[in-house]
Write a protein that binds this DNA or RNA. Structure first.
Lengths: 211, 211, 211, 211
DNA sequence: CATGAATGAGTATTCATTCAT
DNA sequence: CATGAATGAATACTCATTCAT
């Protein structure tokens, strides 16, 4: 009793993800996040239970809560972690793609991000969970679009069409690839993805100044 | 809630959605389904509760269960209802589109299905809920693709590329439109959808035998 | 999952104590309240658990929550119920005490309220629980003081001192009696209460206009 | 939290509050006790958590447990500390009040104890917590009454009524003052306290042998 | 059939306490 | 001794589902 849900007020406002101060804590946090990732993919965000996540991490429920005081906060922490990696991938492409054609860069993005999703299938789960803070959602989307735009802006020959729109297209075509990856008809879907990749290439070639 | 009980099955044969005999029952069922649709859209499938659905239908929980013995069965019933309407739309296009160019038909599909989703926003919720029977998922997907294929097969000039693949593309591009409809950046999204529509047109024109 | 505590929002705002619509419900509610009273007295408000209350009512936890959606709401409902009875007692004295001396009325109040507390020992527990809505606390206190004031105003000979102050004194002296009732040294405490009763009498006699 | 574990006792002898050997330990203990006092007042005994107390003392939970192996023991230690101070106050009055009238001494007690409560608002919290050992409760109460009795016995002119009873009255009137101090209607409460003080004076004057 | 009460397993979360470093 | 991570029983509360009236 004297449960939080009763009217007792914590003086320290919103609970936050705790940063571990010991080595053991750091390791544990990593294990917990991976366990969460696994369970979120398997069951979906809503159906995933904190208990199962703790079990998957071979940890006690108390330990889980020591670092992630609520389920949304756990999801958020994992989400941010993955988003950081995703942005790193794009940043890497930004560097390497200077002077490359938009069409080629587009395919690079397409391929690298497909690989990313395959490695971190929890990403789409996290990115679409219902209780994601709306502001966060828009911000991270903007960040991704900005990175893709940066890639396109560095393209040679330059793109004439609005770069933002192109970025949005890429992002959306990727969303399809993501979903398709979870569908059962693997064979056909692979062809579908290839096709989308091609449509993108065409569109980007068209958008490139043909001098 | 992904409650254990949800998936519990009586050994005495699967419970089935009851077909009401009297008129009153029919009305009640319709009201219940609409209420379910509303709540599913508002809260999502998992977070929607049978109690709230009953309340939204100004009915009692007992009544709701009289017709839909489990939550998945309720979702399934609604899903089928909407799917029927969706197929009707496509069938209508099949008829009207004989002799029309694939590109024009594609746009027609795009527009009509967009309108459908706007009218029945619960459709994507139902189509992506986690506990959808996998077999059902594949079957309905196949039905939709077959209908779109029928449209494309009737196109004049005929399509040379594999019709099934084209159908898949259309379906996926639509998925984007659906998601985009739920995003906050309305203005940009509208442009995005228009762009996808255009890409589709291009692809279909290209696929058409240019004699 | 999809627990209330997650970010899902109920459309209907604050949960409220539900009014039973069936006979069975009415009975159950009564039993639940008595059980709550018993457990609150035994364990105190904080240490009382909803589970134990349900058990004491030979009811399921679900049933308890059907009518009292939170522990504070349960306490509040019981509090109000008892407060109503308490006010009824005072109203009864108001009627009977017209023309009686303030000193006699004071003793009557003292005795009747002592009896009340003995019958409903949960009252002080409820009235002093930490999460009582402050506004409610002040309002009920004001109501009680107003009733006692009404009694004193009807006294013959009339009271010259400020009636409100006298009411506050009575209320406070009673608080002592209440606490004393829960102490172990019964014998001495009884004498103490008698003494307080006497002090009150003296004070009221003094306050009465001796023409 | 009235946790089961609170009352769990190791078979290997009751854990006891550790007496620190070094200066640093003494300081730490003092800080911990003050932090506990603060949190107990803010949240109440039940709602206060060991973690929050440790934090308030800018100490670690481990350190807190080093000195106070259980929450009740912590409360007990603080309780005793405050009780010692309270007795010191009364002892001081005993000395100074020889030959003074009971009425004057009574007012002195009233005032000094009011001040004490204002300085140590945790005292009533501790003195009324549910898990206070009953025996302790009675013993400390007896000690206080004895001290007050000593004061009254030294009064000039001597008291004829039973001194113990008078002591009890004083103690109880004080209880009111305490509670009143926590009520919101400050202004009125002040008048109330003054009034009780006066009633006490009257009663003590009356109890004094008027030769 | 309609109604709403009854049920209880399941869920997120808390917190006193222990223990390895 | 200090520190903070680990533990898990206990708690409030939810919700699908059943059933008596």
């Amino acid at each position: 009793m004297t449960n939080m849900r009763e009217s007792s007020q914590k003086s320290s406002g919103e609970p936050q993800t705790r940063v571990p101060k010991r080595r053991r804590g750091h390791d544990r946090v990593a294990v917990l996040l991976e366990a969460a990732a696994k369970v979120f993919v398997q069951k979906g965000y809503d159906a995933a239970t904190m208990t199962e996540i703790a079990a998957a991490a071979r940890s006690s429920i108390g330990s889980l809560y020591q670092f992630f005081p609520t389920k949304p906060l756990l999801a958020e922490a994992l989400h941010i972690e993955r988003l950081e990696r995703l942005k790193a991938v794009l940043r890497d492409i930004v560097e390497k793609s200077a002077g490359i054609s938009a069409a080629d860069s587009g395919e690079e993005i397409f391929d690298r991000l497909s690989a990313f999703i395959e490695t971190f299938p929890e990403y789409p789960v996290l990115a679409t969970r219902r209780d994601i803070p709306k502001e966060r959602k828009m911000r991270s989307r903007a960040e991704l679009k900005e990175l893709i735009s940066a890639i396109l802006r560095g393209a040679q020959p330059p793109i004439k069409d609005e770069v933002t729109l192109m970025s949005a297209i890429i992002l959306e075509l990727l969303r399809i690839a993501v979903v398709a990856a979870n569908e059962p008809e693997a064979a056909e879907d692979r062809r579908l993805v290839r096709e989308l990749r091609l449509m993108l290439r065409k569109r980007l070639e068209e958008a490139s100044t043909t001098a």
